[in-house]
Amino acid sequence: MIALGLEQNMAGPRIRNEADPVALEEAALVDQARGGDLAAFSELVRRYERRVYRTARHIVQNDEDAEDVLQEAMLKAFEHLDSFQGNSKFYTWLVRIAVNESLMKLRKRKSDRSVSLDESIETDEEPIVREIAVWDDNPEQRYSQTELREILDKAIDSLKPIFRTVFILRDVEELSTEETAEILGLSIAAVKSRLLRARLQLRERLTRTFKRKGDQILGYV
């Protein structure tokens, strides 16, 4: 189910910083959009459409479904703007809608059995590390932006949904652990555990590409 009332469940003080001109401007845009100003909402769309699309694309893993998610999320946000009361960041509220839409897309693919975020993970299971090698200094500079993007996207796409979704929200979209837990309906411990696993798995995959030439892979003691 789509849950639009995220901010009502989030404890803590109001996040909106009244001294921050960007936050003030955004709050004004949200207020105008809530009053039926479509141009104001269009400006909010322009600000966040790339990030929403990227998040959706990483979860659903194809362009067509990512576009559907983007549209559905923006239309739902516009229609239900009244339920956003400014207790959380607008983007956090928006991305929650997009993540829910993305997960619903995945669940509709009956052939994909690895979708459930509720899949239990033993949080005390030891993380796995196999590849240990020093990276080049700034290895990303060896590649064009397009090549680097392909390398990074391929690595994320290789993760199971339960890991890549947490990684995207925490380390790509830079949401807090608490926000990520709220959005995904997970415990804080589950977010931390899955994030560590995602980071370690990505590190392993990227090590194969970015390791310093001539260095041997060390064995872990």
Binding site: D171, L200, R203, F210
Partner: peptide
């Protein structure tokens, strides 16, 4: 390398 992994994505 974990730290660099996070940095490169960010």
């Amino acid at each position: 390398t974990c730290k660099k992994t996070i940095q490169v994505y960010k």
